[in-house]
């Protein structure tokens, strides 16, 4: 770490001091969804292993995925995946040096929920009607 840290500076205010804002909420959501996807990769691995193992294992995986609980998990997984993706696109905008005006950054954060929610519904509409 830095070798020249000055002593006894006041601590910056922590989470419970701040008023909640969209950018703060979406920043936290990006971490939470990232963590959820980290665990969710196990589901992808198990699904692929089931497919590689044979019809019986794949049938079990399909039965679990098709159950009500399975569908709920997959719906949540879809939203979390798309929310993290849209959040990433927001970060690209900021990485490129755009969208830092107060209103713009709030809108970027706010509408990332709308966009990821809309995309999730679109994916499931396609999935359920095909």
């Amino acid at each position: 770490m830095a070798e020249s840290r000055p002593a006894a500076r006041p601590l910056s205010p922590h989470l419970q001091i701040y008023r909640w804002s969209w950018t703060m909420a979406m920043s936290i959501a990006h971490r939470v969804t990232g963590t959820a996807l980290y665990g969710g990769t196990l589901l992808i691995a198990l699904w692929l292993i089931a497919a590689a193992s044979g019809p019986a294992a794949y049938g079990t995986a399909q039965w679990i995925a098709g159950s009500i609980l399975g569908k709920l998990v997959l719906f949540g997984y879809t939203f979390v995946l798309l929310h993290h993706m849209v959040g990433g696109l927001r970060h690209f905008v900021w990485d490129l040096g755009h969208g830092y005006e107060p209103q713009t950054r709030m809108n970027l954060a706010k509408y990332s929920v709308v966009v990821s929610g809309g995309l999730t519904l679109l994916v499931w509409l396609i999935a359920l009607t095909r």
Partner: peptide, 16 residues
């Protein structure tokens, strides 16, 4: 481990 498991499963599906 997760990456290797996915890769192995995908390769087994394709070639195995």
């Amino acid at each position: 481990a997760v990456g290797a498991a996915c890769a192995f499963a995908l390769l087994k599906i394709s070639f195995g």
